[in-house]
């Protein structure tokens, strides 16, 4: 029986309150933002609001970039930078993963490694370049060492944190079925740690890009960093920004390669 003592209110539709707080994709928003930014930038120069010496228009930057492509200097500089990034990053990554793995699975290695990594990690690696030049000379080895050293510590941290995040129940399961130690490492720990390791690659690739530019600015004939520094010294700001644009595209390309790698290797997520 309904309670007749309660006041009766007329029927009302239930108000929807669940909107917002959801991320929607706006495919064209980013492109539009870029287009607006470039248009504003170009027009500030066209209307004489900013001197092209201090901020050359996008059209001048594109022209400078076109000239670099035409005379082959872009490839020359890019090749030198890519080689340094490749070798330095590979050195730092291989060593960092080896140490990170040791720290991830060995308690003694961790007890020794964590304080050392914590002490060395915050050092700005470029500050060590003069020392590396002293040890390895002004040529390529000192640049490889700077990049490798910069990549090494974040890789160590990413690797051993990734190993820590491998669910222990999977390891216990493998042990309960009698899998040998090496199989557990290869079949459980390594694939389980892969997402964390790949996330670390994204960070170390950016670090390598920053360090290669810095190292090339200190002592190199070729390389995007050297090119940007020379252009700055000669007040060729259109070329300077063309170099910066190349660096930005390089970062984007590395990020894309890593995304493809993640999609391929982590299909199961």
């Amino acid at each position: 029986m309904p309670d007749t003592s309660l006041p009766v209110t007329p029927a009302q539709p239930v108000r929807f309150r669940g909107g917002g707080f959801t991320v929607r994709t706006h495919r064209w928003a980013a492109l539009l933002a870029f287009a607006v930014l470039i248009a504003v930038w170009e027009s500030t120069n066209r209307f004489g609001l900013v001197s092209p010496l201090f901020l050359p228009p996008p059209s001048a930057v594109a022209k400078a970039l076109g000239a670099m492509v035409a005379d082959g200097s872009l490839w020359q500089h890019l090749k030198a930078s890519l080689m340094r990034i490749g070798v330095g990053w590979a050195m730092g990554t291989v060593c960092g993963m080896a140490v990170g793995f040791a720290m991830g699975i060995g308690s003694v290695a961790r007890a020794v490694g964590v304080p050392l990594v914590s002490a060395f990690f915050p050092i700005p690696k470029i500050a060590l370049l003069p020392l590396f030049i002293l040890w390895f000379g002004i040529g390529e080895p000192s640049k490889f060492a700077t990049i490798g050293f910069g990549v090494f510590f974040p890789t160590v941290i990413a690797t051993y944190s990734a190993i820590d995040s491998v669910p222990r129940n999977l390891i216990r399961m493998a042990q309960s079925f009698g899998l040998p130690w090496a199989s557990i490492l290869r079949k459980i720990v390594l694939p389980g740690a892969l997402p964390g390791i790949l996330a670390g690659f994204r960070i170390t690739a950016s670090i390598a890009l920053i360090l290669v530019v810095a190292a090339e600015m200190i002592g190199a004939e070729y390389g995007i960093g050297a090119f940007v520094l020379t252009a700055g010294n000669l007040m060729l700001t259109d070329q300077l920004l063309a170099g910066v644009l190349v660096l930005s595209l390089l970062g984007l390309a590395i990020g894309t390669v890593l995304s493809i790698l993640e999609r391929r290797l982590l299909k199961w997520r």
């Binding site: 129940n169 999977l170 216990r172 399961m173 309960s176 079925f177 079949k187 459980i188 694939p191 389980g192 982590l266 199961w268 997520r269």
Partner: peptide, 14 residues
């Protein structure tokens, strides 16, 4: 002696 686990303990990548 073989376990059956509460949380299944399956390898998500396999």
């Amino acid at each position: 002696v073989t376990f059956i686990f509460q949380d299944f303990a399956l390898l998500p990548w396999r």
